[in-house]
Amino acid sequence: MLLRTETAIPSSEITPKEVFESYKMTRRRMLSGLSAVGVAAATAGLPELALGESPLKFVGTNYAVPDRAITPEAKAKSYNNFYEFGEDKSDPSHNAHTLKTSPWSVKIEGLCKNQQVMDINKLIGLRPIEQRIYRFRCVEAWSMVIPWDGYPLAELIKLADPLPSAKYVQFISLQDSKTEMLPGGIPWPYSEGLRMDEAMNPLTLLTFGSYGQTLANQQGAPVRVIVPWKYGFKSAKSIVRIRFVDKQPPTTWNMLAPDEYGFYSNVNPSVDHPRWTQAHERLLNSNSVFPKVVPTLPFNGYADQVASMYAGMDLRKNY
């Protein structure tokens, strides 16, 4: 009989965070000291050094979840649905190291006046990075509490200056068979979308980091959106194109199973997923084996900031 042997790393072998951080800082200082050499290396056609997660400068905000503890960082970064890197939620943290996040650019296209290709460094620097603690609710009925670092997507949209005919914003994720697994059965690239008012809502965050660091690859580095009142799959990862369109764009999970994943997919405890109830969720924010099962809140607890956008809509039909 074969057993899957997952040899746990003994705690004695885990590098203390301070040591790791100081090593990282030394390395960074060294790298910046070497920047002159770096330029020479770059021009010589040598590969750039990828740094992975690195500290982000951010300002604090009032966006918090006072009644819930923040999910341990290791949990948030090892339990990810990112199908480009495998179907299991532990797959992305093992496989996404191949993702190449630098150089990276985002193409802003479609019905807008300022179409352009923007380098990721320019995009990050466009506005001050805010840290916001949001509830994160997966459609699979588990949830976390995560500090995200970014700025409102509305800022970028204003800069792009959409035409009056632009009614929706579409997000297209990286599709690269050289660095991603791209399992069969799913039409790649991953596509998601929001209505223009949803995209402009101050809660919708163009996100570059979490826990004060740049996004881990498995979280959708280097840039993603976070739409906290919708199920997690609406928050597209590793975005390469942002397109302004006049019609509701096709979205990946909706195409795969329209009866399970609606275009809106607002968190709604009264509309069940066909295979499970959405009335409650497993809150993954502690190091306990026993689950904390808590009631799911309408719009994931953000009703007072978003519900008015859906006034008069039948949310049972537009799930």
């Binding site: 746990a8 290791a74 949990k75 948030a76 090892s78 339990y79 939620k89 532990s90 588990w142 497993r282 993954l284 190091n287 306990s288 084996v289 689950p291």
Partner: peptide, 13 residues
């Protein structure tokens, strides 16, 4: 018993 189950993101799953 070793505590590694609790450190998994979603022990119940």
């Amino acid at each position: 018993r070793s505590g590694s189950l609790a450190l998994m993101a979603d022990p119940v799953n």
